[in-house]
């Protein structure tokens, strides 16, 4: 893990609770497996994902929509594989 603020990490975990079950399931899996290995840059990118609207976020994760932002594309790739 990185030197990311531990309180911020706890906040990120809570914000991974979403309005859509599909996202809850994907993010729950990711938090248990993969989240701890993120670099600081990836953590910042994941924070950006959490600010997305649920429907957009899910479309990215499901591959229904293209992710233009390369930073987001990388972290979404990690989420898809989780």
């Amino acid at each position: 893990m990185t030197d990311f603020d531990p309180i911020e990490l706890k906040r990120i975990r809570w914000r991974s609770r979403r309005g859509l079950l599909e996202l809850d399931l994907v993010l729950e899996r990711f938090l248990a497996n993969g989240f701890e290995q993120l670099t600081t840059a990836e953590l910042f990118a994941y924070q950006k994902c959490l600010d997305l609207d649920d429907n957009d976020f899910l479309d990215y994760v499901n591959g229904k929509a293209e992710v233009d932002d390369p930073e987001l594309a990388h972290i979404i790739g990690i989420l898809r594989a989780a």
Binding site: G19, L20, D53, D54, N55
Partner: peptide
């Protein structure tokens, strides 16, 4: 609200 309002379950 426990979560940001636009991420309430109404979104589903």
């Amino acid at each position: 609200s426990k979560v940001f309002p636009t991420r309430s379950h109404t979104v589903a």
